[in-house]
Design a protein around this nucleic acid. Structure first.
Length: 454
DNA sequence: ATCGGCTCGCGCAA
DNA sequence: TGCGCGAAGCCGAT
């Protein structure tokens, strides 16, 4: 049986080479990584060593020092873990597909992992087109490979849920580990010294406008520790409390998932087998991890314009257009928003949490975005503002989930609701609703504590 | 505190 | 063709 997670990206063959190359880019982890284990098995079959390579580009779209610092912490974990397994790891500065091609020049075969955003797809197809040897891609990011789950853009979680739920069981097992049979120690390959932060990140064009955060430490080790803590103390009551922004019923897995530092299948197994919380708690968490996360992947995969206003559903675009001239009570500039200087203390707290933690409580993300729609001159400007702030400050920004979450503010994967000013039939959220359903004053206190501790 | 109405497109049953 | 239903909506009536 062919594994649908493995795809050939070109029609070339294995060639004479010194090693099998695993070009690691999206899934930055040395365990629970199907591409890595597949590369080792392939190398063993060919009687060759395996080399793992990572291309570090200083101008990754929308990335700044906050993201790079988190990523570097994770790469150090990868480096340690691979060294313990006696697998060669090479990190080089450069455009990732070019790094892969350069190292791939001496490879018998290239294996890569999978990413869904426009540039990630282009990187892989460019590389596969130019490589002299066979290139195979292994799904390590989605649990159910995107085209196996559905062959089209899904309109909502309701239509996607049964499809992904039916198939997930086929893809949840831990990938069998393999031991490399041939050592790569004789190969002479340049590698950045990951311990030397200045030489790795001190590249002039790297955007240093946003500071690293202390709230999150990157890497597989930190991710697993955080997950255990969540399961131990916050899974029970999750379903009831997750929309209370003053509380901390969150797993905080999304930054780690964004960089591939933890495997989604690993999280599913841990939650499922934990015996903690009620069935409802576990189901509600897994619905977010599996259905919502993979619906976002479905969206960016099938909608070429996933990062634009015209990628929204027709009904949402037209209702927002019909209300584009509605009177706004307030209109804030990007600068005023970014400085958290609005009349709304709850909104300001959310903006401050975003800036200093690199994170925002899920419920507040919705409220925060809906208010930007209400306070912008046009829905298109609001869309740009929400996306820009999202990608600049969130460690988990620039992810398929970011684009789906931003879209949701403007009606994506949602249904119409009674017409209101500005929003039309897009779902609105108000300060009254926030006070009614949540305890925003507790949230403001939480953020104040966070700011003091910085 | 809880309930119904608001509104559109999808997928399924008929 | 009809019908039920949907990630966290709002508001006003009871």
């Amino acid at each position: 049986m062919n594994d649908p997670r493995i795809q050939q990206l070109n029609r070339k063959h294995c060639v004479e080479g010194q090693y099998v190359l695993y070009w690691m880019q999206q899934s930055q982890r040395a365990e629970d990584n199907p591409a890595l284990e597949y590369a080792i098995r392939t190398a063993n079959k060919l009687g060759l060593p395996v080399v793992v390579a990572f291309g570090l580009t200083p101008d990754y779209p929308d990335a700044n020092l906050r993201h790079y610092t988190f990523m570097l912490q994770g790469l150090r974990d990868v480096s340690r873990k691979l060294a313990r397994r006696r697998i060669r790891f090479v990190v080089q500065h450069g455009n990732p597909p070019e790094v892969a091609l350069k190292l791939g020049h001496n490879a018998a075969e290239i294996i890569c992992d999978r990413g869904y955003l426009r540039h990630q797809r282009r990187w892989r197809s460019d590389m596969a087109g130019e490589a002299k040897c066979l290139v195979e891609q292994v799904e390590c990011d989605a649990i159910v490979p995107v085209e196996v789950a559905s062959n089209k853009r899904e309109s909502s979680a309701r239509t996607f849920r049964p499809k992904v739920f039916r198939l997930q069981h086929l893809f949840l097992d831990r990938p069998p580990t393999a031991k490399p049979k041939v050592s790569a120690s004789g190969l002479s390959l340049n590698c950045l010294n990951l311990k030397d932060e200045d030489s790795v990140l001190g590249v002039p064009i790297l955007d240093v406008s946003v500071k690293p955060v202390s709230f999150f430490k990157g890497g597989t080790h930190a991710a697993k520790a955080r997950l255990s803590r969540f399961i131990r103390s916050r899974l029970r009551g999750y379903s009831e409390n997750r929309n209370q922004p003053g509380l901390d019923y969150l797993s905080h897995m999304s930054p780690y998932l964004h960089f591939g530092q933890i495997s989604p299948a690993y999280i599913v197994r841990k939650i499922r087998d934990s015996g903690k919380g009620t069935q409802k708690d576990r189901d509600s968490y897994l619905d977010e991890l599996i259905v919502r996360r993979e619906l976002a992947i479905n969206f960016v995969h099938y909608a070429d314009n996933y990062d634009r206003f015209d990628g929204l559903p027709e009904w949402a675009q037209s209702t927002l257009q019909q209300h584009r001239r509605d009177k706004r009570k307030k209109i804030y500039t990007l600068k005023e928003l970014e400085d958290a200087r609005t009349h709304d203390p709850y909104w300001n707290a959310a903006m401050n949490e975003m800036k200093s933690a690199g994170y925002m409580h899920n419920y507040m993300r919705m409220y925060w975005g809906k208010q930007i729609l209400a306070w912008s001159l046009t829905p298109e400007i609001a869309f740009k503002t929400v996306l820009e702030l999202n990608n600049k400050y969130f460690i988990d920004g620039r992810d398929p989930s970011s684009y789906a979450n931003v879209g949701w503010i403007f009606g994506l994967h949602d249904r119409p609701w009674p017409k209101r000013e500005i929003f039309g039939s897009v779902r609105s959220m108000t300060i009254g609703g926030l006070k009614r359903k949540a305890n925003p004053d507790a949230y403001v206190k939480k953020v104040e504590r966070l700011l003091r501790s910085q």
